[in-house]
Design a protein around this nucleic acid. Structure first.
Lengths: 249, 249
DNA sequence: ATGATATGCAAACATATGTGAGAACTTACA
DNA sequence: TGTAAGTTCTCACATATGTTTGCATATCAT
């Protein structure tokens, strides 16, 4: 089975793709590559001539301030294109690095531009994927800016559980969270030491169990309540229709 | 002169629009409306059937956590479309509210969909505008998550000065910043009291002067240094070309 | 195996930022 | 002209989070 199926399925979560354009997407020429943990998939300043999609593994996107402080601004999971921006904005202003060993499929910009011209609903789906990314970024801002450490961590864990579970609630089981406490800190605007403290609090209160790099959520509802998590910002269900209402200020 | 010119000019900052599609954009049917300070242009849960563009005035986008904590996630200035997301994602998950009296032009989704079908470079420009918004959101995250209060405020002031000045460096002059200290606090993930303290520090150190709702930057370079501000993330110059390089991991 | 390096864990201490409560000052408007 | 509402500003105090350091494990390369 083509690894592109994974991408198309993910795109189809948010936008309707015509049968014809689905074929167009699946016929894209691609190359498969593998990257070890810690590899850069995209580097600040890069001007790639291709897009990349994660087939397996997890990656994180980060920026650095002039003082060298790092902020992780997103996590990418399989099926996601991690450098769609560079299809339209030549040079990258952030980095994407692998958290685990990753299988990546690359598609040339030329092929994607051709596709966009021929398959409007495919181009549309890429646009919508970006809009959803923007929506997730906004929730991430709310998380960093306004929630305390405990709630912040809980929210991040909820989001991962939800996304990794292919957006189907509730993800009661364990899942692998391949992030060090330092990386969690950089994602949440905290320090590793404080992550450690707070994580222990969550564990001793029975909200999560954690072994090695794995996280288990014994009581999903409880963690959701603690985090104030609401999946609405992920825009997955119900499949968006063009319902309209004229409600306005 | 059509108020749409403002929008087209802003879109053209980031993407090339063909002469023909430029006409298509300018021929969009629109309605002009006025809103008082504090009006909602978009409300969480809305399903608008039109897009809105700011002709004059300033607006802010915000989200609220279940505990009622508010986070401002973006500021919108004239020429920007504040609810492009809802063209493709039916229901809004955040609010847009005016900071000043605003003149707004609304365009029906139907007209925009028609345009997108007929004018590929116009559709493309809307996509790119969203990508730039995403890039700005990421810098905002870095600001909130990793900089201290003083640097955070300085960075926000730099970004505004830069954007309000139509992206032409250096904006030495005074400009109007129509935000209360409480709103600044909600934008930066701080409290109003702390904004007050820190603002006074910036003033007494001669980095900014401020009278009423106005801000003056006596020495642009100095503030930029204090903020660690680099306008690269705004993606305005040089006009993006399709330059390519195969640099990769 | 063996060292080298990264990560988790812990404690004591430092401080940036938050909290609560008012007073002074503006602005709007009756 | 005066009252009300909103905003700025201030103080004293509380605390969440950061800093530094050390050590115990885990992970990894050789």
């Amino acid at each position: 089975m083509s690894p592109l199926v994974r991408m198309v399925d993910k795109l189809a979560l948010h936008a309707t793709i015509s049968a014809q354009d689905r074929v167009g997407l699946l016929e894209l020429p691609y190359t498969t590559r593998f990257f070890e943990t810690g590899s850069y998939l995209l580097r600040d300043g890069d001007m790639p001539d291709h897009c990349g999609m994660l087939v397996s593994g997890v990656a994180y996107r980060h920026k650095t301030s002039v003082e060298g402080l790092r902020q992780i601004v997103a996590i990418h999971i399989p099926g996601e294109i991690y450098n769609l921006q560079q299809l339209h904005l030549a040079t990258a202003d952030n980095n994407v690095q692998t958290l685990t060993r990753c299988e990546v499929v690359t598609i040339s910009h030329a092929a994607l531009h051709e596709l966009a011209a021929k398959c409007p609903s495919a181009a549309y789906a890429l646009f919508v994927a970006t809009i959803v990314e923007l929506s997730m970024a906004r929730e991430w801002m709310l998380n960093i800016g306004r929630r305390d450490a405990r709630t912040r961590i809980a929210h991040l864990l909820c989001e991962f559980a939800f996304r990794l579970n292919n957006h189907s609630l509730p993800p009661g089981q364990a899942y692998e969270l391949p992030m060090t406490q330092e990386q969690l800190a950089d994602a949440l605007g905290l320090t590793a030491v404080h992550i450690n403290r707070t994580l222990k609090g969550l564990i001793s209160d029975g909200l999560i169990t954690h072994s090695k790099r794995g996280v288990t959520i014994p009581d999903w509802e409880m963690l959701v309540a603690e985090a104030g998590f609401n999946s609405r910002y992920l825009h997955i269900s119900p499949p968006e229709t063009a319902t309209q209402s004229a409600r306005h200020a």
